[in-house]
Design a protein around this nucleic acid. Structure first.
Lengths: 335, 335
DNA sequence: CTGAAAGCGCTTACAG
DNA sequence: CTGAAAGCGCTTACAG
């Protein structure tokens, strides 16, 4: 690795001039700029990032912390984040904390350590104390996306989970369903609580509040399968429709139904959430709720850039969802 | 953010002693260590990573470069990488280059910029010139995992793609299939070429070389659907089995078959590759080839650590795959 | 076991 | 437009 000194001597100027040629080219004469450019190519120079960060007191790096990188839901959000970040000259470090507080802690340290300028938190499933402690150790530009903490005191980009749930239930009721069950995500997840409020308000409005079953999974396909079996037995008292808080769980429920000899949607209708890529390719194709994932990522990153640069920002942003009707829902059979 | 100076004055010692208390505690007296620990907690100190990297000439960070973060195949590999990395005190920066040379370039610069100590390259789909140029600019510990470049001159951890393909074809032939088609990944991908060699050698060994159709997709579900339609029409001359280079493509092919009124496996058998989580939950459950993903990640990271620390390493590591027979394959119907 | 001091590679305010 | 010099926050060889 060559240094700025070698470039300077190859270009016959000072290190200050090399630095300026790179950072503020208009402050350097045409001729010098060209000599510097040639020298850089000649010696194969890449500025030392550590030295630069130390001096500039910024890293031009942000961390995006995910609960679980294997969840396909996040990939398009990451794309949205990276689009905006790269355009603004920022690098995105993706942290996968896997519900492991120790891993999460390592990522929270990045900001006080000046290794990152801001954080995008895509999960509320981190120890709050860890977060608060890190925030106490210094400036901590932070934006939550998708999820949020109950107190909602942090800048957040979410979808309207309440309304999305209402829409799903209204749709099922309009089809004729009266026994509608819900398979939620983790019990303490605030977005799941929002959706449940939507479900229960809507069912109540339709006079269907009694006996609506609710079970909780973890958003993953396996929990959908397991809880699907539980929701659908005994068969004679099963719901005619199940609203699932993720597409993966919906796919698990469909497998459970198939295994119990039930056909979807004839015997039971299934709605998912997220509109993951595969939801269009499973059998039957999944009716689901689409979140504007790229936009969520973009909006969150823009908000974070605003925070980093101390600009005024809109701290609570809510984006709309869209119900996508495919083949996994239909009218209930008269029984 | 407080600095080491503030800690030193709070602890009544020099910055050198604080530094040693952190890095080499046994070189500091018990009592001093305790005072330093208290001072650190008091002022809320996190060492400045940029200063530390600059001084130590290492970042304890490695980059893992992926072709596409939305491919669920990679998540367990990343887990394997992170397990080993974190245990060794390294941080993992996940780079998603999306087949975009510019993005890839930004990640390659990380090593010459001293922002990363090594790179794990999980794709060969990057401009070779970009890589070679970055490697010329300084020390560049690099290991490839899963994929590789044709010349195989880089340290690599892969599975035995040739043998896996042979196994898949042997299995289909044993079931009675004679017209076996292949849906490969991208045309210039060396692992796909290896698999094709396995297919063609095995078919030849069974006297079935003639007329075996091969089409290429991009590993994604949509390309599986599109190419599945192409492989399966006209119906009368369709293959009785299709070997797909990814589970996602296999799922796409199954949808194509369904749409053409074909039942899997009765009318056509499908084998996937990768054993992604959802392969067990689609209908029918997918027969597939499982790669030891966590082990690939772990082995690659261990190899990289060896390279970083200039230890002797085994530069070419090949792990075994396993054929997992589920429901998407069966005997062909006599026609 | 501890401290003073040099130095890692940059950037930038200052002077010219 | 350019250069000399200070300093970002650490770590470590050296001396004691």
């Amino acid at each position: 690795m060559s240094t700025i000194k070698e470039v300077a001597s190859a270009a016959g100027c000072s290190t200050a001039t090399v630095s300026r040629a790179l950072a503020t080219p208009d402050k350097v004469s045409e001729a010098t700029r060209a000599r510097v450019a040639r020298a850089i190519a000649e010696v194969g120079y890449t500025p030392n990032g550590a030295a630069r960060s130390l001096r500039r007191r910024e890293s031009r790096t942000i961390v995006a912390l995910l609960p679980d990188i294997s969840n396909p839901f996040f990939s398009e959000i990451i794309n949205g984040i990276e689009d905006v970040a790269h355009q603004a000259g920022y690098r995105v470090l993706i942290g996968d904390c896997e519900r492991d507080p120790q891993r999460a802690g390592a990522y929270f340290d990045l900001l006080p350590a000046n290794q990152a300028d801001g954080m995008l938190l895509l999960t509320a499933d981190v120890p709050r104390a860890l977060l608060d402690d890190a925030r106490r150790r210094g400036r901590f530009p932070l934006v939550m996306a998708c999820e949020f903490f109950d107190d909602r005191d942090l800048p957040t980009v979410t979808v309207d989970n309440y309304r999305a749930a209402c829409q799903a239930i209204d749709y099922l009721v309009a089809l004729g369903h009266r026994r509608i069950a819900t398979l939620t995500g983790p019990v303490h997840n605030p977005i799941c609580r929002e959706r449940e409020r939507g479900v229960s308000d809507t069912l109540t409005a339709h006079g269907l509040a009694g006996g609506a079953q609710t079970l909780a999974g973890d958003f993953g396909v396996h929990s959908g399968y397991v809880q699907g079996l539980a929701l659908l037995t005994p068969l004679h008292s099963r719901p005619t429709a199940i609203f699932c808080h993720s597409d993966e769980m919906a796919i698990g429920v469909i497998k459970a139904a198939r295994q119990l000899g039930l056909e979807v949607p004839r015997d039971v209708s299934i709605i998912g959430f997220d509109n993951i890529r595969l939801s269009e390719y499973c059998d039957p194709e999944l009716t689901t709720i689409s979140q504007p994932r790229a936009q969520i990522g973009q909006a969150a990153m823009r908000l974070l850039l605003g925070l980093i640069h101390d600009e005024p920002v809109e701290r609570q942003q809510v984006l709309e969802t869209r119900l996508i009707v495919r083949q996994s829902t239909g009218q209930p059979e008269p029984r």
